[in-house]
C-alpha cells in the first residue's frame, strides 16, 4: 500500500462535509447553528460576513459556513459555493411579506453550477410562532415542485428556539451526503 493511498484513506476516514447555510437575513441561520452546537443563543448579532463552525456530528466532521443574508451581502454568497456538499436554506416561516423574495433568491441559487451536486435541506424555521406557515405551505410558496429531478432535497419544519426538528434535518442531510460521497467508507 503506497503512502498516498494511506493518506487518502486517512482523509476519507475523517469523513468531512462542507455545509453552506444560506437564506434571507433574519431567517435564523446563526441561531440554528449555535443551537445544534449547544451554545448560548441569547446574544446573536446579525451576521456581518460569515461564521465557520466545525463540529462533530455522528461519524462526520462538519464544516458549517453560516453566511449573512442581508441584501448587501447576498452578492458575496457565491464566494462560498466551491466544494459545498450540503446546502441548508433557512426560511423565516412567519415573514410572509418576504417569501417571494425568498423564493427568488433560492431559485437563483439552485441555478449555480457549483452547487448542482449539493444536497438541499430547506428548514421552514420559526414553527414555534403561531403566525408561521407550515412546511407544506412554505413548499408551495417557494415553488419547490419545479425542483430539478436530480436534486436530493427535503423540506422540514423546525424551530431554533425550541430545538424542534433541527436534529431530524441534520440527520437527513448528513446521511444523504454520506451515502453519496462516502459510499465506500
Amino acid at each position: 500500500m503506497g503512502l498516498l493511498t494511506i493518506i487518502r484513506k486517512v482523509k476519507r476516514k475523517e469523513k468531512e462535509m462542507r455545509i453552506l447555510m444560506v437564506g434571507l437575513d433574519n431567517a435564523g441561520k446563526t441561531t440554528i447553528v449555535k443551537r445544534i452546537n449547544g451554545e448560548d443563543t441569547s446574544r446573536i448579532s446579525p451576521t456581518l460576513g460569515f461564521n465557520i463552525k466545525t463540529m462533530q456530528f455522528k461519524r462526520y466532521r462538519l464544516n458549517i459556513w453560516d453566511v449573512g443574508g442581508q441584501k448587501t451581502l447576498r452578492s458575496y454568497w457565491r464566494n462560498y459555493y466551491e466544494q459545498t456538499d450540503g446546502l441548508v436554506w433557512v426560511v423565516d416561516s412567519s415573514d410572509t411579506r418576504r417569501l417571494q423574495d425568498c423564493r427568488d433568491e433560492l431559485h437563483g441559487l439552485l441555478k449555480e453550477e457549483k452547487l448542482i451536486g449539493a444536497s438541499l435541506l430547506i428548514f421552514a424555521n420559526k414553527q414555534d410562532l403561531k403566525g408561521s406557515l407550515n412546511p407544506e405551505e412554505i413548499a408551495k410558496v417557494l415553488d419547490l415542485h419545479v425542483m430539478d429531478k436530480d436534486r436530493h432535497w427535503q423540506i422540514l419544519g423546525c424551530s431554533a428556539v425550541t430545538g424542534e426538528g433541527l436534529l431530524d434535518g441534520f440527520n437527513w442531510l448528513v446521511s444523504d451526503i454520506g451515502s453519496r460521497i462516502y459510499m465506500l467508507g
Partner: peptide
C-alpha cells in the same frame, strides 16, 4: 404584480402574498 424592488414597494409584495397570509398574527 410584485415587479418592483422590495425597498421601494413592499406593498405589492405583500398583496401578492395575501392568500398565504396567516390569520394567527
Amino acid at each position: 404584480g410584485g415587479v418592483s424592488s422590495p425597498s421601494t414597494s413592499p406593498v405589492s409584495k405583500e398583496d401578492s402574498m395575501a392568500v398565504q397570509e396567516s390569520n394567527n398574527r
